[in-house]
Structures are given as C-alpha cells and as structure tokens.
Amino acid sequence: MFLQHLLNGITIGGSYALIALGYTLVYGVLKLINFAHGEIYMIGAYLGFILISLLPAMPPFLQGSLPLFLLVVFGIAAMICSLYGFYLEKICYRPLRGAPKLTPLISALGASIFLQNFVMISMGAKDRIFPQTIGMRAISLGGVSFTPLQLTIIFSSIALMALLYWFINRTRLGTAIRATSTDPFMAALVGINVDTVISVTFMAGSFLAACAGVMIGLYYGSINFTLGYLGGIKAFTAAVLGGIGNVPGAMVGGFLLGIIEALGAGYFSSEYKDVYAFFILIAVLVFRPAGLLGKRSDERA
C-alpha cells in the first residue's frame, strides 16, 4: 500500500513540478510571482481536450498510432500556450516593468481572472469530459496497480524536466536566462537582450504548464475552468517549498508535495489532504525561509 501511495504521489507530483518550474523561472528573471500561470495550465488542459476530441477528424496515420497522436496533441497545446505566455508578459507585465512591485502583482491577478472568465464564457461552465483514449485498465505488479497512462505521465514529466535542465544549462539562451536571473543589469551590459530572455522564460514556463494541463486532463478525465486556481496554488507551494527561483528546487518541491499529499491522505484522513501540503509549507517557511534548496537572499519574500 505504501508503494501504491508513493506511485500516486509521484504521478500528481510530476505535474506540480512542471507547473512550479514556470513560477520559478519567471521569479528568477523578474522577481515576480506570475499568478496567472495557473490559468495557462488550465488553458493547456482545454487545448488538450479540444485536440483529443478531434481525433476522429485526424489523418489516418495519426489515428493509427496513439503515441504519435499524443505527441502531436502535446506539441500543439504547448505551442499555443507558449504564445499565451508570450502575450501575457507583453500585455500585462512589460508595460509595468519598473513600476512599484505591487503593480505587476495586481496585474497578474487581473490577468488570471480575465483568463478564467474567458474560458468559462467560450467553453461553458460545465465540466468537460475527456474522451477515454489511452488505456485505463489497471496493471497489477507486486501489489501495486497502475495504468499505462500513469506511466506515460510520469515518464513524460521527467523527460520534459530533463529537456528544460538541458536547455537552461547547455544552450546559449539558457545561459542568458541564468545570467539575467543573477543580475539583469549586468546581463544587459554584456549585450544580452533582456526583453527576449524574459519572453523566452515565459514561453518555456507556459510550454511546461500546458503539458501538465494535458496530462492532468487525460489522467482525471474531467476538467473545468476553475482548474487553474488550485493547481496554481499547489504548484506555487511546490516552488516555494523547493526554494523559489531555483530550478532543481521546483522539481524536488513538486514531487515532494505530491508524495506528502498522497501519504497524508492515505494514512491519516483524506478530508485534510490540502492541510498536509500547506502545513509542510508553513513549517519550511518557518525553519528554512528560502526553501529546501534555495539560497538566502534579501530579495526573497
């Protein structure tokens, strides 16, 4: 039973981690909590729903191969969400750069409410049900049951994180992101286009959030326009848990949060599922204010 809870926790934790990365990346370069990030995740889930519903209208080579089709769904949803992230920054944050710190935060909340209502009006207030495409049949192995879908989710979230890690540490653009996050002023002086770096950061974060959205949609099968609220708050918690601004921290925080929730709900009472997560958050903030992997800094909230 312990292993089962652990597996459940890792599955949901992977999606927390993917969303948390978006918070952490943006915080790194802008020192801003992008509270509209949860809505990008929700929009990703809706895009996944729309695309998967289109399966019967797809060309036969896609209909024949489920993995290929899913790859296309993930790709398109992530691409469109990247655009959402790009324009979100351009419209809601860029004009406010240099404004007092509270101003972009309020703008973020406004963007979040706008996006939520936009989806409610365009897609309806009802729950949307995903067509059940991938295997939901449970496979049992040594007392642990899982579905092929669950494995797909775990592996793709790890693969996406590896991809991001490579992007941040091994590419020129990634180096520029790291430089900007260390000191935006100096980065600009050495010739880094800070505006481009910020746009790329938003796009990368949205890309990951969209993938998490599609995964969660597939996993739970029903989505609605309020999905981004709790998802966003949980992922934000994960980012703070690991140390906001710290990329490996967000990954660790995400998985940890998922596992704590699963074990807490499994061994004590599921009524207090959210209580465990937020209790741990408070404890970490009290004893390690910079998060588990974060470094102390005056900038941090």
Partner: peptide
C-alpha cells in the same frame, strides 16, 4: 468511513485506502 473534498480532482489516496 471517509470524507472527501468537493471540487478536488485527485482521489487516488482515498481510493487506494478503500481498495486495501
């Protein structure tokens, strides 16, 4: 005898417990 939170999507902990 378990209570769950309304509006949540992830019930895997409680169903795992029920199953066992």
């Amino acid at each position: 005898f378990e209570g769950i939170a309304k509006g949540e999507k992830d019930y895997s902990p409680v169903v795992t417990k029920i199953k066992s």
